[in-house]
Design a protein around this nucleic acid. Structure first.
Lengths: 229, 229
DNA sequence: ATTCAATAGTGTTATGTTTACACTTGTAAT
DNA sequence: ATTACAAGTGTAAACATAACACTATTGAAT
C-alpha cells in the first residue's frame, strides 16, 4: 500500500512567546531542567499528540506554561534539519504567540523554570531555536505593519504612548509621535475612552481600546491598516 | 527518557509548482494514478526520507517530476489536520516552487500524469491542497512585491512586456505600462541587452536580464525592490 | 502659592511617491 | 505606400510620508 514502508518521525511544536511591558518587547524562555541540553535555554515546546493538529498542540503547550487560552497564535514554519535535535530525529513546527504579559499565570511559569527576557537580551538558545526566534520577529514586523496584531500584546485599555512604545519595540526604532498619532487615529480603529491612565504621568493620558468592528469594516472596504515606522 | 512514548508520524512534502508562459500563470498538477483518491487532482508530493530534511525532500520530488534542480523553493508551512489525508495520519510540509516552464522535462511530466493548468482554471484538488495553493499564491504575491523572485518564472532573457504580463498574472490585475517601466527600470536591477526579441512584434522588443549584483547592492543599501501593482 | 518636573498633546510644510493618461516609433506583411 | 501591431516614451495632479518644536496639565516639592 501507498503508505507502507515510509518512515515515521517525532513531531514537535515550539512556541516563540512574545510579551510586552514598560521594559519593552520580551520573550518567554525556559531553562531546561531535563536532558538533552539541561541547564541551557530554549523555547517552550512539546510533542504532537495523536488526536490533535500542531496548532492545537501549540495551544496546549502554551496554556500549560502560561495558563492562557484563546491566545494569538500563528504558525511560522516547520524545521526539519536531520540533526537539529541531537537526542532524536524530530521535525518541529514553530508557532509564535502574542500574549498580554500581565495576564499570564506566574506560578505556572515558575514551575517550568521559565522567565521573561527582553528581546535585546536573548541568551544563546539550544538547537535551531535562535533561527526560530529570528523568523518570528521578522514575521511579527511584517504582520504588525499591515494588520492590527500588536493589540494582542497590550492590555484591553492602553494609551497612545504605550501603543507607540510597542511599535518602537517591535521595529527597534524611534517613531515620530505626531506622525504616529495622526496615522493611527486616521484609521479609525481606536476608540478613545473618557477615562485616563494616571500611572505614567501627572497629567494623565487618555485610554483607548481597539475597535474590531471598525477594523473589519476598514478591511472589507479595501483600506489597509498601515502603521509606518 | 524524554522522547519515549511519543507518537511518530508520517511526514510528507507537497509542492505548489508555478510556471509562467504567454498564456499566464500556471500550476503543475497531477492526476493521481494511485489510491487513495485515484483519478483526482492533486499537488505533487512525497514522503520525507530519513537522511533528508523537508526542503531536500521537496527538491527531490520536484526534480523527479520536472527534471529540474536548483529551483527556487520556499517553505509555506506545515499542514497537520488529523484527518487531512483519509488514508493515514500524515503531517505535510508545503513548499512552493518557481520554475521556468520552458525548461522542464516534458517526458518526465507525462510519465507522472502531470499537466500544467492555468491558475484561473485550477480544478478541485484532493485533501487540503486547495488551501495550500491559496497560501502559495498569497505568499507569491507578497514576496514578488518586494523581492525579485518573479525572475525565476521567466527565461534568462525577457522583455519588459513579458515581465509586466508576469506581474499582471501574479496579481490578476492590469498594470499601467509607463508606470511599470518607470518603476522597474529605476531600481537599476535590469540589464538592457542590445539584442531584441522579435517573436511578439514586428518592431521587436529589447531583451533584459536580471542583474543580481545590482540587486544585492540595492538591498544592502537599504533600498527596496518595490513593484507597485 | 509658586516653582519644578515630567509626560500628553497638537499642525504645517517640504519632499517623495503614486496614479492617471495618449501619442509616436519601428517593422514586416500586404 | 499602406496597414497592422506591439514597443516605447513624459507630465501633471493627487496623495502619502517625513521632518520638525512648542504648549498643556498636573502632582510633588519647596
Amino acid at each position: 500500500m501507498f503508505y507502507e514502508g515510509k518512515s515515521k518521525y517525532l513531531v514537535a511544536v515550539d512556541c516563540i512567546i512574545f510579551g510586552f511591558d514598560s521594559e519593552g518587547l520580551k520573550l518567554l524562555l525556559l531553562e531546561r531542567n531535563f536532558e538533552p541540553a539541561k541547564g541551557k535555554f530554549s523555547l517552550m515546546g512539546g510533542f504532537l499528540a495523536e488526536g490533535e493538529n500542531t496548532e492545537e498542540a501549540a495551544a496546549r503547550v502554551l496554556e500549560d506554561l502560561t495558563g492562557l487560552n484563546d491566545v494569538y497564535l500563528e504558525q511560522l514554519q516547520a524545521f526539519s534539519a536531520v540533526n537539529r535535535d541531537p537526542g532524536a530525529r524530530v521535525v518541529s513546527v514553530a508557532y509564535y504567540a502574542l500574549i498580554n504579559i500581565e495576564e499570564h499565570n506566574h506560578a505556572s511559569v515558575e514551575k517550568h523554570s521559565a522567565f521573561w527576557v527582553r528581546y535585546e537580551d536573548i541568551p544563546e538558545l539550544i538547537f535551531d531555536h535562535k533561527q526560530m526566534v529570528d523568523k518570528a520577529i521578522a514575521r511579527l514586523r511584517r504582520k504588525a505593519a499591515t494588520m492590527p496584531i500588536g493589540f494582542n500584546l497590550l492590555p484591553e485599555k492602553f494609551t497612545l504612548t504605550q501603543l507607540q512604545k510597542l511599535y518602537e519595540a517591535i521595529y527597534q526604532q524611534n517613531i515620530d509621535k505626531r506622525n504616529f498619532r495622526k496615522k493611527i487615529l486616521s484609521t479609525g480603529v481606536l476608540n478613545k475612552l473618557t477615562e485616563k491612565d494616571k500611572k505614567s504621568s501627572r497629567r494623565g493620558a487618555f485610554l483607548f481600546t481597539f475597535n474590531f468592528e471598525a477594523y473589519k469594516r476598514l478591511e472589507e472596504s479595501g483600506g489597509l491598516f498601515g502603521v509606518n515606522i
